[in-house]
């Protein structure tokens, strides 16, 4: 009998002996994983939503004078110095007039006696469609307002700020639910190990007396924790997937669904969550067993 066979057989015996407490731990881990992954999924989708923002999100920088080619280059250089942007468009006074005229349709007569250069020239800046860029948009606006020749900077300030607040709130919720996951998982693993140790007290004492090595005693608990982590996270992810399918089916016809496409984790992310849960549970049981048995 080699080491692996021996510890696997020990693990099996231990699971059989303390299955009630194991089931309780499994349910707790599953629920913790479900709560955490639910918020993480919402957060993840909100990030993707931020990345899919349409072209309406732009900063319009009104200038007091029409910039020549040299000045345009200088503006372009200063803008890109702050942050990389998707594109920059310069709108001359005449182009602004033509656009405005086009928007008036049948009421273009009102412009009859007005000079064609009455609108200020502007720079339209399209920031990168990432959350990082969006979160800096307020600072970006302040930076642009301080550039020479700038009259005013305009953007969907209220919308962006609300979106940012929502993302920040989600970040806090994800962080808290992650903390909750770590706490409940380690507590339940520790509790489960304590119960197992208590129920196998005489057996563990006997193992020490007949010369079982520390690894022989410790590894089965470690495997037990890892197995609980694997089963708990897999069950939690499965429950989340069912919930996700239900939400998608229930809101398929709504307008919100049209602009907000709700997607599940990709395979690497789901695998990473499971691997981290396994490591967390195995680590928790390892620490607990060292603490309880001093082996």
């Amino acid at each position: 009998m080699n080491f692996l066979v021996a510890v696997f057989s020990q693990t099996w015996r231990s699971l059989v002996k303390s299955w009630r407490s194991q089931v309780l731990s499994l349910v707790t881990i599953t629920l913790s994983i479900l709560i955490f992954t639910f918020f993480y999924l919402v957060y993840n989708n909100a990030l993707q939503f931020g990345n899919r923002l349409d072209n309406d999100l732009r900063l319009i920088v009104y200038l007091d004078e029409e910039p020549d080619q040299t000045l345009q280059q200088e503006y372009r250089h200063k803008i890109e110095k702050f942050d990389k942007v998707e594109r920059i468009e310069f709108v001359s006074k005449l182009e602004a007039y033509d656009r405005f005229k086009g928007q008036l349709d049948d009421s273009q007569d009102v412009l009859k006696d007005i000079p064609k250069d009455f609108l200020p020239s502007s720079i339209e800046i399209y920031p990168r469609r990432s959350l990082e860029s969006l979160s800096k948009i307020k600072e970006f606006s302040a930076y642009l307002e301080n550039l020479p020749g700038v009259l005013k900077v305009q953007y969907g300030r209220e919308w962006v700020e609300r979106f940012n607040s929502f993302i920040q709130l989600l970040q806090v919720v994800v962080f808290l639910s992650g903390g909750l996951l770590i706490m409940t998982t380690t507590f339940m693993i520790g509790h489960s190990i304590r119960l197992t140790v208590f129920s196998r007290k005489n057996e563990l004492e006997l193992l020490r007396l007949v010369g079982a090595s520390n690894s022989y005693i410790r590894v089965p608990f470690f495997l037990e924790g890892a197995l609980l982590g694997l089963l708990g996270s897999a069950a939690g992810m499965a429950a989340l997937y069912i919930l996700f399918r239900w939400i998608r089916a229930a809101f398929a016809e709504t307008a919100a669904q049209g602009m907000f496409s709700f997607s599940f984790f990709d395979t690497p992310t789901a695998a990473m969550i499971i691997v981290l849960s396994v490591l967390l549970c195995a680590g928790g049981s390892f620490v607990s067993i060292r603490k309880i048995l001093s082996v």
Partner: peptide
Amino acid sequence: AYSMEVSYRSR
């Protein structure tokens, strides 16, 4: 069996 298992004796 306990005394033999800890020495990894064969089944």
